[in-house]
Design a protein around this nucleic acid. Sequence first.
DNA 1: ATCCTTGCCGAAACCGGTTTCGGAGCCCAG
DNA 2: CTGGGCTCCGAAACCGGTTTCGGCAAGGAT
Lengths: 352, 352
Amino acid sequence: MPVSRPQPRPRARVTINDLAQELGLAKGTISRALNGYPDIAETTRTRVARTADRMGYRPMAQAQAIRTGLARSLGLVLNAGPGNAHKPFLTDFLDGISRAASEESWSLSVATAFDEADEVATMARLVEEHKVDGFILPRTKIRDARIDLLRDLNVPFVLYGRTGDPEGCAWFDISGEDAMRDAVLRLNGLGHRRIGFINGAGVYNYAPLRQAGYVAGLAAAGLPYDADLVRGGATTIAQGEKHGADLLALAVPPTAIVCALDMAALGVYRAAEARGLRIGHDLSVVAYDGIPEAATALPPLTTYAVDTRAAGARLARLLFHRIRGTDPIHLRETAPAHLVARGSDGPAPAST
Amino acid sequence: MPVSRPQPRPRARVTINDLAQELGLAKGTISRALNGYPDIAETTRTRVARTADRMGYRPMAQAQAIRTGLARSLGLVLNAGPGNAHKPFLTDFLDGISRAASEESWSLSVATAFDEADEVATMARLVEEHKVDGFILPRTKIRDARIDLLRDLNVPFVLYGRTGDPEGCAWFDISGEDAMRDAVLRLNGLGHRRIGFINGAGVYNYAPLRQAGYVAGLAAAGLPYDADLVRGGATTIAQGEKHGADLLALAVPPTAIVCALDMAALGVYRAAEARGLRIGHDLSVVAYDGIPEAATALPPLTTYAVDTRAAGARLARLLFHRIRGTDPIHLRETAPAHLVARGSDGPAPAST
DNA sequence: ATCCTTGCCGAAACCGGTTTCGGAGCCCAG
DNA sequence: CTGGGCTCCGAAACCGGTTTCGGCAAGGAT
């Protein structure tokens, strides 16, 4: 099909053959020296390393891949479908992964898909074309087709988020449940007794966890659970506003609301404003994520922030271990979110 | 150094040899048939194509790369340094590029850097390791070290944004100047006579262009240019608020403000609020970008939106042409931003 | 019938690495 | 002095493709 054949640039790369010639050694020897094989004399090894460095030798990743079977590349498939547009810390996430990858001279190849089926197809393609040695899976779902695929294909992967059926799964996650529990206790400490909860999207694994954390917080504080105070499915400002308005319209409205997502909290701000309630005084709000808008909101939002950059880096490193054969059982970690106390929560208003 | 050698998965790939054996042809013949060489009989070509398809053959990208010199991968280096965190349409941008790349069975590899020097170093590394055949350069600067590097290395690239010294440069850009000019004329049509302008960061190429557009709009409307009404360097809400406050504190404040960035406009909202001015009535605001927050702001922001997804796709396609040898002179395009009229602008208030 | 094209394909070299295999030296014990 | 083991490196096969080169067979011209 391709009528116009692409023209390779004739840039002079220094290859392993150049090195071999320069040093008067066989190229196989060079390769083994550079890759730390034990059957190379230490003096030879340093000599090779030094001139390789001097001549600016960089092994061509593809040539290595063909024999070793390793593309030296991490895969990341992003859902770019409707409703997934807003990813405030995507840059940080990519940065974390990319930096960790660079440390090992690996690279990151990203692709996009518009729904779950497309995600699976895209991942399969990347594997078929051998572009990628493993995947980082953002936003673990409760039922996740991506996991099924990769388990099936026997391709290494690491989840950002835990999962119910851990068979063959490695993961890194932020313990949102601890944060939610903490949030409830914090508010209880401020005198709040009716504390609402607005959860995120139910398809994701984090949702039940965070709700469980909220419930655990209630229990730890000795507060009763009231189903009327619990809403779910709010991932946008608009949805947060709707659920916030619903909660505030209750006969006995909450004096504080815990949100599983900052975005929802920003919606609650609007619902409160519509009722003439001042956030931080008449209504306390505590959320989770640490999006940049939370800092510039009025008042600034108290939230449990996650270090997305660190998460990306950690995921990449776990994936390296996974690719190198470590049992996924030993590659499961959770880390806490960190409270950023700002102005959106305060003492409970004196009860009338 | 690597003590634990990575273990390649023993998945059974179907190679070109399998195809050759199955068809009783030489593997060179298979390769030529698949790549559209003219010395293959049409019947043979279809026979090969059919069984290749049936057996699910996917050429291993790396093996092709080693001989052809093409990695079949587009490079994108993102600046993840401080102040660059907020990239609301990064996902769309990636989506556009990734989709266009997939169409040709290419992939996208992204890396991050924290400043310009790091960007250049990262790009050089990607080229040395032969991971990438060309780059898409987001956010063209007036003086751009990335351009110097790639020109020097003779590596194909495409700019998102124009540049002063076009030597060897291909680009795609949105004509922000037309949008700014339009914005001024629109406001003039609404009766505004004192129209302020808040520009973005001066290091980027778009800044002088948009300011020129603002000036052109003034001229076309027959309005005088007043340097007091022009501010620059506002890329965040906070900076927009500051400059907005300055403008509103003028002896004769503007009745309308054009912002080069939506973010700055959101800051102007706050400055107006602080003075008790109602956006859309007492003060009109028109901006540029089309970030999602603009739609949910109160009132919703009138803005010139850019289709970032389409831009990414177009850039990728231009880069393909560039890699295949098209003269960059023929690879320069601009497209208009599209007005999204919402509630932040209205008739000028009756003058006192 | 012979020669010359032309169409079509096989064989082999090649790309830049990795890995296997074997053998040349050296040291030391018998 | 000989045999065995160990250290270290060269040679060559190999990975999965691409590209060059040459030759066979069919067809047309002479």
